[in-house]
Amino acid sequence: MYKQTIDELLVRHSFFAGLDPRVIELIAGCGLNEKFSAAGYLAREGQEADKFYLIRHGTVALELRAPGQGPLTIETLQEGDILGWSWLFSPHRWQFDAKALTLVRATAFDGVCLREKCEEDHDLGYEFMKRFAGIMIARLQATRLQLLDLYGTAD
């Protein structure tokens, strides 16, 4: 039952668009639906990153902690967003906290399993790399804009 739902979800989502149905099936097989109540954590900085999420409902805040400051929200993610690429890259640890701001429903994909498949099948690995690179570029550009402090006071 679950598997079918995830399958459908993947087919409709732009991140997975154009992937071979066989691959979709494979990814869906690594997916598990999860639910987080508000203030629950989808990921904690420093912990092992063994999955990535497709957010299906709710808002997730990516937070950084700095000494002497409370958690600082860097970005919020929403329905349809992909969360997490640390599972793909050594040392496979989360780089920030991901906190549910509302009730969050997400599909978690087993990164360890997918990582192995990517190593075995480089075509699949390349597809993953391309898609995650796209997300990274978008985030990087948004971060650069944030750095410009566009609306800040210059004087």
Binding site: A61, G70, E75, T76, A142
Partner: peptide, 10 residues
């Protein structure tokens, strides 16, 4: 900071 419940990002 934490008290903001809305979107963060450009």
């Amino acid at each position: 900071t934490e008290s903001w419940r809305g979107n963060v990002g450009v």
